[in-house]
Design a protein around this nucleic acid. Structure first.
Lengths: 280, 280
DNA sequence: CGTCTCCATACCTGCAGGGTATCGCCCGTG
DNA sequence: CACGGGCGATACCCTGCAGGTATGGAGACG
């Protein structure tokens, strides 16, 4: 099976509409129809049910969509990683969402640079939730992401376990509380409610909270972005979130291994009593 | 990058010789040379150093070989799994080496068949050490293999932890011992010595031992294949080997999940005091 | 220095894969 | 019930590239 065919199939399977898929692929509809038929003939299995309103996936098609995406990612990753390995100055690309490092990076990077296996680090700031994809398709070598993301295909190390806090406008009825529980926030406009605005980073979120548009429950490290017009209050019964460092499973890169070492050491130091004593 | 190009590259990288690779691929040498050049131009990186004696891999080429193999396996697996998902009667394919189930399968299969998610099981007997490959490229859905194999890309469950025993001909000088240590076997012709015959299953091994050709240290379950002309003696300081059940990471197949359930239950039952009491 | 061994280049050919035009089918609708 | 619109499939054409053969050219070696 050629990757082109597979990419064609994935496009159709995602659109469930040959015409639209063709448009997305920048080609005409008939050759795409034929390519899919060829693929079905070669595999000896029907991938779509055709109706006059579009197409739907058969069980075989559903499996191929799932596995095919991973396979395409693997091919992309192979190409990208090969190219990068061929560059004269090797680099390590770290991906995280905006403010996704919980302030850890400033400790990690100096520590990493002291490692003999260290190479130059390039930090790639992705959209929220996109870190895993960039790691899968080879655009990044390591990723910082929350533990509840899909981590299949990665080796991982938990760096921090974070309690959650509510972020409230200063004048909010709960703003004076020492702590609260999730039930206290019932009825408040929440982040991720339908119709709530898309938030791209913590600064934006703080802005929205300050304006009274919504309240949010976020990991405690968001406090670092605190501003005078918002208040953070611990939420006692919110599940903790973990910050995880992930890298391709079975990676044998010395640069990656060194970065993992530096990160875990920085993270444990960050939580140690020593530092707690300094900051209090 | 097309899978064909990638397969071409892998062939050349493995042979380190364009002509031989072309032969292996069933094509002439010049188009293969050009295909590699095209690939290099597209990626913008040299994959081989050309000499008059053959070709050698650049760092980029080494990475592409490693990652490319996995990617090709992923593509194969996608196709194979899709085809199988499209078959009218779904099947679960289990791969193991000859006698690789430590006698567990006869307990697992009846248990599995009682599960509502169970489907027909096909047992594929592979060569020793080939189980992981068949699982990676989609020819099998689950595998029984030793824990020291490369398990990247799989989810796993340890089924049994096995002590090792020495297998000796009946008249051997150590045959009467209650137990022995590895050092006792120094100087004996061992399995895996260079020049030792290829062994395909335990029966063959037993035959060779009986003939006095060699002695072997194997997991204790090999006792089940015992014969009157060989003796097994515990080896106290040999590392234990684990029998592992593996399946593709992140698999969401109900049939696989049910098989894992049945296997772990059968394995724990197998080692429980209850069964020990029955067999003693 | 000639020869052998490889990989690269030159040149040719067939077909895979893409484009346009159009068909046939199903469905909603006046 | 007839008609129009939307969708995938088919017919037909054309181009570019993958692959073949013949040959060049550069290093290794006796």
């Amino acid at each position: 099976m050629e990757t082109r065919e597979l990419a064609y199939f994935v496009a159709v399977a995602e659109e469930l509409h040959v015409g639209r898929a063709a448009q997305r692929l920048g080609m005409a509809q008939p050759p795409l129809s034929r390519a899919i038929q060829r693929l079905e003939r070669r595999l000896g299995v029907l991938l779509f049910e055709r109706t006059s309103r579009g197409v739907t996936l058969t069980p075989a098609g559903a499996v191929l969509l799932e596995e095919g995406r991973r396979a395409l990612d693997a091919v992309d990753a192979a190409a990208r990683r090969a190219v990068r390995a061929g560059q004269p100055t090797p680099r390590l690309t770290l991906v995280m969402k905006p403010d996704g490092d919980a302030g850890l990076l400033e400790h990690v990077l100096p520590l990493y640079r002291r490692d003999p296996d260290a190479v130059e680090v390039e930090v790639l700031v992705s959209g929220i939730g996109e870190q895993a994809q960039l790691l899968r398709d080879g655009r990044a070598d390591v990723a910082l992401l929350p533990a509840h993301d899909d981590l299949t295909g990665f080796d991982t190390e938990v760096l921090l376990v974070l309690d959650q806090v509510a972020v409230l406008p200063r004048g909010h009825r709960l703003a004076g509380r020492e702590a609260l529980v999730l039930a206290d926030l019932a009825g408040e406009p929440q982040l991720h409610d339908e119709g709530s605005p898309q938030v791209r980073d913590v600064g934006q979120l703080m802005q929205l909270v300050a304006l009274g548009q919504l309240v949010a429950v976020v990991p405690e490290t968001a406090r670092r972005n605190g501003r005078s017009d918002v208040v953070t209050v611990p939420v006692l019964d919110a599940p903790t979130t973990s910050l995880v460092l992930a890298w391709p499973e079975g990676s044998r890169s010395r640069a990656v291994a060194a970065f993992v070492r530096a990160s875990t050491r920085a993270a444990t130091a960050d939580q140690s009593p020593a530092r707690a004593a300094v900051t209090t």
